[in-house]
């Protein structure tokens, strides 16, 4: 497996970690209860990570 592919594991840990480690309403994130706000922020982080993966992935160089 190419080392760059390990980036794809980060969202799996990130998205689930927030609600599992801090299942409380406060602090609100962007006006939302902590678990929902956490997951929402991680959707954006996931998109950024996938963009980084896409840029670094040799499979995309040259169909």
């Amino acid at each position: 497996m190419r080392p760059v592919y390990w980036i794809a594991l980060i969202p799996f840990v990130g998205i689930l970690a927030g609600p599992v480690l801090h299942n409380h309403v406060h602090p609100f994130i962007l006006g939302m209860p902590f678990p929902l706000g956490w997951v929402s922020v991680w959707l954006v982080i996931t998109a950024v990570l996938m963009a980084v993966l896409y840029a670094l992935d040799p499979a995309n160089a040259g169909e």
Partner: peptide, 19 residues
């Protein structure tokens, strides 16, 4: 709160879909 799962699983599915 259990409804939050709907927003979370799609994002992880897209990561799997990349490969």
């Amino acid at each position: 709160a259990p409804a939050y799962y709907i927003i979370a699983y799609g994002a992880l599915a897209y990561v799997l879909g990349y490969f």
